[in-house]
Design a protein around this nucleic acid. Structure first.
Lengths: 162, 162
DNA sequence: TAAATAAAAGACAAAAATATCTTTAATTAT
DNA sequence: ATAATTAAAGATATTTTTGTCTTTTATTTA
């Protein structure tokens, strides 16, 4: 379904949404360990996601790292796919035809007509913050190393300004 | 969604289902032109699909080429994906996690729970022959070059034996 | 100001996917 | 039998994706 790039991008974003806030940033090592991805490669991907500091924010130097604002948490998961250039999955023809429409449908078109918008809606409507919340509610990325104790002050509470 | 390999495999299969029968075989050149794919690469892919002559059949030499039996036309489209080793899309975790289940769900699990089976069912229930039929009913692969005249005797009628 | 820290940026490497070309084997027609 | 035709098989080439390593830049702390 998705490339490694997109997978890591989504996983990293959700993890950052869950574990960070403007005064508790996370380093690339911690992120890549938690989401089970190669560190330097993930760093590259995060560069795509920090462009414009719209989705993920970052600061360099001591106590630096990656974090998300409360604003950013409201963005749809689709934004992640867009930033890594993989939103095509949700828009293009399943069979990869350049031309595929109601007038000129590919053989799968009519049967996929219902599903495709549902899939797209899923990524449009799911807010990153919601997904991060569900992670708290039991969903995990890899092995449950480092959970249980880490009761952090729940991001996106009230003080958020940006 | 799918790799080029899978896309070409599906397109070629549907095309062969539509245009061939045991005594009218199609060559790789015609196929690759019709489905807009590189010929030699498509040939390689067809080798995967002819293993065991279960899905696509082939014979060499003059008047040889690729074709499908009436039996084969009843197979689900899923079979194509299986033969090129890409049925994972329908089965594995959207985020690529090794472990992802009801007990240990990834962040997208609960929201994708409905859609995934529907997608899978689509490929399980769609018979290749049906798709080939829809092609006649207006669906196309590429530009409409070579349509209109080619009224061929509608395969899978009655004489099929194997 | 100097040293330490951490991401950004760039160059490079390995692996996988995509694509092409050549040779071989099977089949048919002459 | 020979030549012609067509897919199968194998080898090779190209491109893209994935992954690593090094250098630079920004930031903080001492």
């Amino acid at each position: 379904m998705f490339s490694k790039t997109a997978e890591y991008a989504i996983r990293a974003t959700i993890f950052i949404a869950q574990k960070s806030d403007p005064d508790h940033k996370i380093g690339i090592e911690e992120i890549s360990k938690a989401i089970d991805s190669p560190a330097s490669f993930t760093a590259k991907i995060l560069q795509m996601l920090t462009r414009g500091q719209e989705l993920i924010s970052s600061v360099r130097g001591p106590n630096g790292g990656f974090f998300m604002t409360a604003e950013a948490r409201k963005l749809p998961l689709l934004r992640v796919l867009e930033l890594v250039g993989e939103d095509g999955v949700l828009k293009k023809c399943v069979l990869g035809l350049k031309e595929c429409s109601e007038e000129k449908p590919c053989p799968l078109h009519h049967r996929y007509r219902k599903l495709k918008p549902e899939l797209a809606r899923m990524f449009e409507e799911m807010q990153i913050g919601q997904l991060a919340g569900e992670l708290d509610a039991g969903a995990t990325f890899v092995g449950n190393k480092g959970r249980g104790a880490g009761k952090r002050p729940m991001p996106g509470g009230s003080k958020a300004t940006r």
